[in-house]
């Protein structure tokens, strides 16, 4: 699409711009999204170009941001809410779970809630507490919501546009530590929003992740390859709905599966994938499905986060265990 490689932050910005150009009912709302362009500059320049009515600096109250987005949606708008940091989404949790997620159902399908809720997520940036959470599991557990996570600039550019265009509410997880990581080219065409992608083929162990863990998985695959172990790396891209077919197809070839996420382990996405793979590909498995995740603790002080987060060593250790089983 573009000859100029760009960061994920810029790709999201460009994607939002396209979404706003395409549909005049798209409004962006959140804290500091106007003149400042958001604390991560994802909405940089949009208020200048689209005006204060379409890029709205809201009062500082997350329930208010989501609740008013519901009202705007009833009136026919297509709000894109920015939650400033993952840990700040919880004051808006009630409106997301009880109202955004259920409204279409409660209205017998007569009213749509085409709301996108962007959440800069995850750790690895040395932040203070409440700024490094992985919140996707809460929302994936709620009927009526879809939950996706981008992991690279090209996906970010296309996925944000598809999320905004979706008539269902979408929780859009943005791994903040990748915002300003390596620049990349933008693909000419998108991969379907709710489809997983095999980002590196391999025959020994399937390794599945999404969002912020993807860079770690690709690095792990490179290192493993030096020892002759070929990891098949899958980027889920969407955690709900879950493209389990792509995972199953891979596991049927490799027989081994490691699931990686930053969110705490218990009752998480990894558990769900393990259950579905066990149900659908039991006889293909040569080893138990293993998980490399955040621990069941509060997110640690930042000096500890690199040990706490799924990192290269932890992923390779799990790969070894899967192979040795």
């Amino acid at each position: 699409m573009s000859d100029t490689p760009m960061t994920m932050a810029k790709a999201l910005n460009e994607g939002l711009r396209k979404a706003m150009e395409r549909d005049p009912k798209v409004v962006i709302m959140g804290e500091d999204v106007g003149k400042l362009g958001g604390v991560f500059r994802i909405t940089d320049g949009l208020q200048k170009d689209f005006g204060e009515d379409r890029v709205i600096d809201t009062p500082l109250a997350e329930s208010g941001i989501i609740g008013t987005a519901v009202g705007l949606a009833i009136r026919g708008y297509r709000p894109v809410c920015e939650i400033q940091f993952d840990g700040f989404v919880f004051p808006g949790f009630d409106q997301i779970v009880n109202q955004v997620a259920k409204f279409h159902n409660r209205s017998a399908g007569l009213v749509k809630m085409p709301i996108t809720i962007r959440i800069p997520s995850g750790g690895g940036i040395g932040a203070v507490e409440h700024h490094s959470e992985s919140v996707e599991t809460y929302f994936a557990h709620t009927a009526g919501l879809k939950v996706v996570a981008c992991s690279n600039p090209s996906d970010a550019y296309w996925m944000i546009q598809d999320a905004v265009a979706d008539d269902d509410p979408v929780i859009f997880i943005e791994p903040k530590r990748l915002y300003h990581a390596a620049k990349a080219d933008i693909a000419d065409a998108p991969t379907a929003l709710y489809q997983a992608r095999v980002v590196r083929p391999g025959q020994h162990v399937t390794v599945v992740g999404y969002g912020g863990t993807m860079s770690t998985l690709l690095e792990s695959a490179k290192v493993a390859a030096e020892d002759g172990i070929e990891l098949e790396v899958i980027d889920l891209r969407s955690v709900s709905p879950l493209d389990i077919a792509t995972v199953i197809e891979s596991v049927q070839r490799t027989g081994r599966l490691v699931v990686v996420h930053e969110a705490p382990q218990s009752f998480g996405i990894g558990a769900e994938i393990a259950a579905r793979v066990t149900e659908q590909a039991f006889y293909s498995l040569e080893a138990p499905v293993l998980r490399v995740t955040g621990y069941d603790t509060p997110y640690p002080p930042s000096r500890l986060e690199h040990e706490w987060l799924p990192n290269l060593d932890r992923v390779l250790d799990a790969v070894d265990k899967a192979l040795e089983f």
């Binding site: 009515d53 609740g67 008013t68 519901v70 009202g71 705007l72 009136r75 009630d94």
Partner: peptide
């Protein structure tokens, strides 16, 4: 009380319309 925010949001839409 959840609906009071919906009302406020709807009113934001009214202004924009």
């Amino acid at each position: 009380g959840a609906q009071t925010l919906h009302a406020a949001g709807y009113a934001m839409g009214v202004i924009r319309d």
